[in-house]
C-alpha cells in the first residue's frame, strides 16, 4: 500500500467531519434566522418550553438538592481540618453557581429532553412527517427546530436558577441543621463571597447549554438514517455528543470568564 492510500482513510474522516460541522452550522443559523421571520409560530413555543423546561423541574430539584447536600457534607469534612467550617456557605454557593448548577442541570435535561428531541425528529423522518411538511409548503426547520431552540434558550437559565437555589438549600439543610454550622456564618459568607460575575458566568453557561442541547439533539435527529436502528443510534449519539460538548464548552467558557 502506498503512502497516499494510507492517508486516504484519515483524510476522508476529516473531510466528513468538517462537512458535518458545516452542515450543523448552517442548520443552526437557519433555524435561528427563521425565528425572526414572520409568520411566527407562537403556538408551539409554550409547548416546547413545557416539554424541555417544566417537565424537567422535578428531576432538577432532586439532583440539585442532593448535589447541595453532598457538597455540604464533603465541604464540612475538608473545611473542619482547617477549622474553617464558617466558610461552608460560600464554598457550597460558589461551586454550585459557577459550575455545578449550569453543568448538572444541562446534563439532566440532555438525558430527559435531549434524547426525546432526537427520537421525535428521527421518527418524524421515518414516518415521512418531515416530507409531509415539505409537501404542505411548511418549512420543517422553522416548524420543528426553531421553537425547540428558543425553548432551550429560555428554559435552561430558569432550570439552572432552580438548581442553584435548591442546591444552596440542600447545603443549608446538611451544613446548618445536621452538622451545626452557624446559620449566620453560612449565609453571611455566601453573600460576602458571591459576586455578580459569578452569577453572570453561570447565566452565560446555562444559555450556551440550552443552545447546545437543542441544536445538537435536533441536528442529529434530523440527519439520522431513516430506519429504526438509525434512530436508536442517533439517540445514543445525541446524548453522548451533547454531554461531552457541555463539559468542553464549560471549560472553555470558564477560562474566558475567569
Amino acid at each position: 500500500m502506498n503512502a497516499l492510500a494510507l492517508l486516504a482513510v484519515p483524510g476522508r474522516r476529516v473531510i466528513d467531519g468538517v462537512r458535518v460541522l458545516g452542515r450543523s452550522g448552517i442548520f443552526l443559523s437557519a433555524s435561528i434566522f427563521y425565528g425572526f421571520v414572520p409568520p411566527f409560530k407562537l403556538r408551539s413555543l409554550p409547548q416546547q418550553i413545557d416539554f424541555i423546561g417544566t417537565r424537567s423541574i422535578s428531576i432538577v430539584v432532586v439532583t440539585g438538592a442532593f448535589t447541595g447536600m453532598v457538597l455540604s457534607l464533603q465541604g464540612y469534612y475538608t473545611l473542619s481540618k482547617f477549622g474553617a467550617t464558617g466558610m461552608l456557605g460560600s464554598a457550597v454557593a460558589l461551586s454550585i453557581i459557577r459550575e455545578l448548577g449550569p453543568v448538572l442541570a444541562a446534563l439532566m435535561v440532555t438525558g430527559r429532553a435531549g434524547s426525546a428531541i432526537t427520537a421525535e425528529i428521527g421518527i418524524m423522518k421515518i414516518t415521512e412527517q418531515i416530507n409531509a411538511l415539505e409537501m404542505m409548503a411548511v418549512n420543517p426547520l422553522k416548524h420543528i427546530v426553531t421553537p425547540k431552540i428558543f425553548a432551550g434558550l429560555i428554559s435552561l437559565p430558569l432550570l439552572t436558577t432552580i438548581f442553584d437555589l435548591v442546591g444552596i438549600g440542600g447545603g443549608y439543610l446538611i451544613g446548618v441543621k445536621l452538622l451545626g454550622v452557624n446559620e449566620g456564618a453560612y449565609f453571611g459568607e455566601m453573600v460576602r463571597s458571591v459576586e455578580f460575575v459569578d452569577i453572570y458566568g453561570g447565566f452565560v453557561k446555562s444559555l450556551v447549554n440550552g443552545l447546545i442541547i437543542t441544536w445538537v439533539c435536533s441536528f442529529i435527529g434530523y440527519t439520522a438514517v431513516a430506519t429504526t436502528e438509525g434512530v436508536a443510534r442517533a439517540t445514543t449519539n445525541a446524548v453522548v455528543t451533547t454531554s461531552v460538548l457541555i463539559l468542553i464548552m464549560d471549560y472553555i467558557l470558564t477560562s474566558f470568564l475567569l
Binding site: N131, A132, M135
Partner: peptide, 28 residues
C-alpha cells in the same frame, strides 16, 4: 407556492402523532 397546488398521500400516511384528526386535516 407550487406545493400549495399539490397534495400528497404518503405511504405511511405521515399524520402528525401529536395532533388529533381535526388538527391534522386543518394543519395546511
Amino acid at each position: 407556492e407550487y406545493r400549495k397546488k399539490m397534495g400528497m398521500l404518503f405511504q405511511a400516511s405521515a399524520l402528525f402523532n401529536s395532533l388529533d384528526v381535526f388538527e391534522n386535516i386543518a394543519f395546511p
